[in-house]
Simulated assay, not measured.
Amino acid sequence: MHRSIDWADGAIVVIDQTALPAEYRLLELRTIGELAGAIKRLAVRGAPALGAAGALGVALSAHLGGDVRADAELIANARPTAANLAWGVERALAKLPAGKDAVLAEALALLTEDEELNKAASAHAAEIVLAECPRRPLRLLSHCNTGRLATVGWGSALGVVWHLHERGLVESVLVGETRPLLQGARLTAWELAQAGVPYRVHADSAAAAAMARGLVDCVLVGADRIAANGDVANKIGTYGLAITARHHGVPFVVVAPSSTVDSKLADGARITIEERDARELTEYAGVPITPPGAEVFNPAFDITPAALITAVVTEHGRFRPWLSSPGARS
């Protein structure tokens, strides 16, 4: 399957990311309930991929003859932090007056654009990384999953690795396991292996030690929402990586399509942070690992202040907060 999410025979088809790396499995989502469930349990995840899911969900509802606006609200609220999900929903919903075929055409156009925009964003970011990091070949550190699985078919931050690897400029990638659902160890490592890029998986808590030992030239991450001032919401643990990178003088680069920028939000303090199920921490493979009744703090994301970020990069190049208006880009 070329794309991580697509439309075929009246269904939304996604790679089931909960099954990887043990099994490569496709899901055919034929109802809005199935789509919302897949989003909530992270069978489809990653901000750009969620934008595609939102648009395709509206198209699916229209083709089923459902209450499209009610279904659109249900989809948009499935994961509150990712800006792209509601953006994709709204973009497809705008075509509803023109009929279901127009809605589907818009959703499919969004899929094609996503691949192109992420290739452009990661190409811009690759040049910024090369300008910031004199060492060759590069030793990069990634967090969560930002490859084709998190997008429609290329990748955001991991797309930078693809560009640099094609030029023979990557020595290796350190892959943070990304607790508690291990998107780095399960998904990013799988993508790197598929592409033949050397990598090592490390415990999230080992990132500081790796930087202290001089093993990291640049940190590359994606984003789920970017405020107008450049604050970034991303997978939990990103903020700590940014603090560590700043302490050790390691460039910290965020890569995302411009649809991730929420110009309505002045700063990151206004971003809603999703809280996940406590069982993600209290159980492992269904087996309890904490004392009965243990209280849990399980935010899915954190906010990294713009001051800690070397560059936020979209398909337009380096993001320039407050240049002329909130969300302005160069």
Rank of each mutant, 00 (worst) to 15 (best):
A83E: 12
R167F: 07
V160N: 02
T282G: 09
F252C: 07
E171G: 02
L85Q: 02
P198A: 13
D16V: 11
H316G: 07
V313S: 14
T238K: 07
T304F: 09
L110R: 08
D217R: 12
G317H: 03
F252V: 10
K119I: 14
E274F: 08
G66D: 12
I12L: 10
R45K: 04
D101A: 13
A62P: 01
M1K: 01
S324G: 13
L308F: 10
K119G: 14
G99F: 00
P326L: 13
D267A: 12
K95Q: 14
N234R: 08
G184F: 03
G66V: 05
A120H: 06
V313F: 05
S259H: 05
D9T: 05
A233T: 11
P292W: 08
A109K: 09
D71T: 00
M211R: 11
E90Y: 01
S205Y: 07
A294I: 08
V296R: 11
A228W: 06
L181W: 14
R186M: 09
L50T: 06
L27Y: 05
G46P: 02
T272V: 12
T304I: 10
I75Q: 01
P257N: 11
G317E: 11
V201T: 09
A43M: 05
T238R: 07
H163R: 15
Q17K: 10
L181C: 01
G54H: 09
A300M: 05
K119S: 09
G230E: 04
A285G: 00
R148P: 01
I226W: 10
Y239A: 10
W162N: 06
V173D: 00
